[in-house]
C-alpha cells in the first residue's frame, strides 16, 4: 500500500463538503473555520495565530 503523503486537509475538506451537501464554497468554509477557532479556542496561542491571518 502506497503511503499517503499528500496534504490531507486539501485532499479531504472538499470531499467532505460534497459529502455533506455543504452550500458554502471551500474558501467560505475555511473562513468559517478560522472564525470558529478565533471565537472558541481555549488555547490562547491557537487563537492568536488564527487571528493574525
Amino acid at each position: 500500500m502506497k503511503p499517503c503523503t499528500s496534504a490531507w486537509g486539501q485532499k479531504w475538506v472538499p470531499e467532505l463538503i460534497k459529502h455533506q451537501d455543504e452550500p458554502m464554497s471551500l474558501e467560505e468554509v475555511i473562513e468559517d473555520c478560522r472564525k470558529a477557532v478565533i471565537e472558541n479556542s481555549l488555547a490562547l496561542a491557537q487563537r492568536a495565530y488564527a487571528d493574525k491571518h
Binding site: 486537509g9 475538506v13 455533506q20 455543504e22 475555511i30 473555520c33 478560522r34
Partner: peptide, 15 residues
C-alpha cells in the same frame, strides 16, 4: 465533522 476537520487541518495545524 467537515468543519472540525477543516479547523484542524487548515487553521490550527497550519498556523
Amino acid at each position: 465533522p467537515m468543519r472540525r476537520y477543516g479547523m484542524l487541518t487548515y487553521i490550527i495545524e497550519q498556523d
